[in-house]
Amino acid sequence: MTHRLHLLAPALSASLREARFDDGCSLDAAGVRAARDAADGVPVAVRVWCSPSVRCRETAAELGLTAVDVPEWAGLDAGRWRGLTLEEVGAREPEALAGWLSDPGAAPHGGESVRGFCDRVAGWLTSGAELSGRTVAVVEPEVVRAVVVRLLGAPDEAFWRVDVPPLSGVEASGRGGRWNVRLGGGPL
């Protein structure tokens, strides 16, 4: 039987709006409204999961979903850059930031490399292909990026080329260890 995995990015929070490495902040008022407005567009699912972050849990709740945290879908660990904006990191550590953005194996912040992160997400996909039915998951934008990169067999350098707007969705369908990606439709 086929497993349909519908991944949804979280609604807006101050961190997303400011291009800030996740600092655990809640959704902002616009994000709450947008998630509530999108609730009717969420497909019915056998399972509902989410990344273990405040903004993903809150988005799931505002969509009317009762989600279970999946630790493997935690956002990319930005180490000592957590809570800082890209602009702040660029001003403090321009060479480290440039290296991290251009080399998927680099982790100058002391956290996780893009390659290591994509490997972590891909590990879950290997086991998740054996499930059946539909799963809806509210996940960090970088989880969506990693899924798209790995399922398409793209190089890890393509990670930064995948834009994931708030409340946008991507569906992956898998059976027998093989996945397909379905793009389109835009936000819910």
Rank of each mutant, 00 (worst) to 15 (best):
M1R: 12
M1C: 06
M1G: 14
H3L: 08
R4G: 11
L7S: 09
L7Y: 11
P10D: 06
P10E: 09
S13L: 10
A14C: 05
L16K: 01
L16D: 13
L16G: 11
E18M: 13
E18N: 15
R20H: 11
F21R: 08
F21H: 15
D22N: 15
D23H: 12
G24L: 10
G24D: 12
C25P: 02
C25Y: 00
D28V: 12
A29C: 10
G31M: 06
V32Q: 08
R33A: 15
R36P: 01
R36Q: 14
A38V: 08
A39D: 07
G41H: 11
G41I: 02
V42I: 13
P43K: 02
V46R: 14
V48A: 06
W49H: 13
W49K: 03
R55E: 14
R55H: 12
C56W: 00
R57W: 06
R57P: 03
E58R: 01
A61L: 05
A61S: 11
E62T: 04
L63V: 11
G64R: 05
G64L: 06
G64A: 09
G64W: 06
L65P: 01
T66K: 04
A67F: 03
V68G: 00
D69K: 03
W73H: 10
W73I: 06
W73Y: 10
G75S: 10
W81C: 06
R82N: 04
G83N: 07
T85L: 07
V89S: 10
A91Y: 05
E93F: 02
P94S: 11
E95G: 11
E95M: 11
A96M: 02
A96E: 11
A96T: 04
L97P: 04
S102E: 13
S102C: 08
D103W: 03
D103I: 02
A106Q: 07
A107L: 04
G110L: 04
G111K: 08
G111D: 06
G111W: 01
E112V: 02
E112G: 03
R115K: 09
R115E: 14
R115A: 15
G116T: 07
C118G: 04
V121K: 01
A122I: 08
G123V: 13
S127R: 15
L131G: 05
S132F: 01
S132K: 00
V138H: 03
V139M: 04
E140I: 00
E140F: 00
E140Y: 00
A146K: 08
A146M: 02
V149E: 13
R150N: 13
L151Y: 08
L151R: 08
P155D: 15
D156R: 05
E157V: 09
A158N: 01
V162P: 01
P165S: 07
P166C: 07
L167P: 10
L167W: 06
S168P: 07
S168I: 10
G169E: 13
A172L: 14
S173N: 09
G174E: 15
R175T: 15
R178D: 14
R178H: 15
N180I: 14
V181A: 05
R182C: 10
G185Y: 04
G185E: 04
G185I: 00
G186D: 12
G186Q: 07
